[in-house]
Amino acid sequence: MYSVNYHRASSVADAAKLIKKGDAKFLSGGMTLIPAMKTRLAAPSDLVDLNHIAELKGIKVSGKTVTIGAATTHYEVATDEKLKKVCPAIAELAGLIGDVAVRYRGTIGGSIANNDPAADYPAALMALDATVVTNKRQIPAEKFFKGLFETALKDDEIVTAVTFTAPPKAAYQKFPNPASRYAITGVFVTKGKDGVRVAVTGAGDNGVFRSKEIEAALAKKFDAAALDGVKVPSANMMTDMHASADYRANLVLVMAKRAVTAANAGA
């Protein structure tokens, strides 16, 4: 790791000031950034630690409205009793990230700001039609995620929370890489009053996306059988050492079927 200056922010306002130093980066759980710095894929001059800012922590559930603070860990999301009642799908998703030591440190804000194309949360936020709250504005998830490791965030903008309305039906299914637990393909399905939303992570060559083909089929009937014969195009799927584009296109359909079945069973 190259030399770096560490700063611990005491508030969001403090963090917004500290980030102006040199080529600074925000540090949350550090489960991606620290390994990236160790391999010198990232070499910020300064780190602004967001992990000790009380206002970024915690989960609020009010009726069906859920607000998750940006510095809330995957472990906290996976085990929060109120959240498990109103939206078990996102708690289950959090419990599938990495391993428990990673879940103790990694945060939802850090994960979405990084926008790894194989991360789990982007699919959840997109399917839940969530809003990303920053220290400057509110951004709909669909406008927040912008391709591989790219988001709508400005350099000095800090994710403070994620908020969404829990839908009556939701589920996430993923085909994990057996070593890293990242999604080779993950599909988050929701059915709410505004219809069916299906978001796919791990598969697209430009990050998380909504599958219009699957949404259209499920809008007619919210059942795994409705997906028989649906064609998911492989043109914009990723090919790498783990899976080909065709294989991923098929996995999208298989994971979507499992997710719909799980969503119906959970309701």
Partner: peptide, 11 residues
């Protein structure tokens, strides 16, 4: 229980 190779002493 966390992985101490992925956390700075300063953190």
């Amino acid at each position: 229980a966390v992985k101490s190779c992925t956390m700075l002493a300063a953190q």
